[in-house]
């Protein structure tokens, strides 16, 4: 009985995984073959990849995308952690206010946000009118609800207040307790919300196109350009971007688990 159930569960998991991976697999195949006659692709080639990798514009755009996603996420996470430090330790009554404040960005989605930013800041003095600064700041606002909610839930989940009190009774300051006891305990949860934020930023086209379009190129825009020229190269871009995201996530997870291990050594 138990075994049967297990097999059933496994089948479902495999089917779901296959369903999710199929488009990616097809993209990969499409990027590796010249032609698609009937049902069989022919003419295996790395040409699309070779062209892309040789194109400095492509690398620059990917690098830009990585920078404008990593910086706002890192900054946003640090700011939220600092804000939560104050809320948890000194002003628990501000929690509700924080929650409302951090949920507002949900309401201003889509094209409204970048257009407002543009019309507000194009005439502003340096560095506010810098497109890169605008982008980073706008992304920080966009991912704020996700980062905040993730961190808040984890802080509540580990009972941060009680842990800090226990640490204080053992001779730790509040600051030390927050950074050495609470943060290591919420790290895995924070990593998840960081990944979510990463996915949101990588998937954005509207904001980046409105704010940066015509000024510099990012991976999304590069892809959009390529799409008009060659389907095969588009697929190659997608695969490379996927690998880059995978590497970044993998890196984050390794960092997090290393930290976890160090704490337990």
């Amino acid at each position: 009985m138990q075994k049967k159930k297990n097999i059933g569960a496994k089948i479902i998991v495999i089917v779901v995984i296959a369903y999710l991976l199929l488009p990616l697999l097809m993209t990969l195949i499409y990027s590796l073959f010249k032609e698609w006659i009937d049902v069989v692709p022919t003419g295996f080639t790395f040409a699309a990849y070779a062209e892309l990798l040789a194109d400095p514009a492509f690398w620059q755009s990917v690098l830009r995308t990585v920078i404008i996603s990593v910086i706002p996420i890192a900054l946003c996470t640090v700011f939220v952690l600092l804000a939560m430090y104050v809320v948890v330790l000194y002003h628990p009554e501000w929690d509700r206010f924080m929650q409302v404040l951090c949920t507002i960005p949900y309401a201003i989605q889509g094209v409204i946000l970048p257009i407002c930013v543009l019309s507000l800041y194009t005439g502003a003095p340096e560095p506010l009118n810098n497109r890169m600064v605008m982008l980073v700041a706008t992304y920080m606002v966009v991912i704020l609800p996700y980062v905040y909610q993730g961190i808040r839930n984890n802080i509540a989940g580990v009972g941060a207040g009680r842990l800090i009190e226990a640490a204080q009774m053992l001779g730790a300051s509040k600051l030390y307790a927050f950074f050495r006891v609470v943060i290591p305990n919420i790290m895995s949860g924070v990593t998840v919300s960081v990944m979510l934020a990463m996915a949101i930023v990588f998937g954005d086209f509207v904001i980046i196109n409105t704010l940066a379009g015509g000024h510099f190129m990012t991976a999304q825009m590069y892809m959009y350009d390529v799409m008009k020229k060659s389907g095969q190269r588009t697929c190659a871009v997608i695969i490379i971007l996927f690998v880059v995201t995978l590497l970044i996530s993998g890196f984050a997870f390794v960092l997090q688990s290393k930290q976890g291990k160090k704490k337990t050594k």
Binding site: V158, G159, R162, L163, E165, A166, A167, Q168, M169, L170, G171, A172, S173, V181, P184, N185, G260, K263, T264
Partner: peptide, 19 residues
């Protein structure tokens, strides 16, 4: 400050450090 009082405390909800 609590940290300077040299007082030990056992809480109702244990409050052990999970990590």
């Amino acid at each position: 400050d609590p940290k300077d009082r040299n007082i030990g405390m056992v809480f109702q909800q244990y409050s052990l450090f999970p990590n």
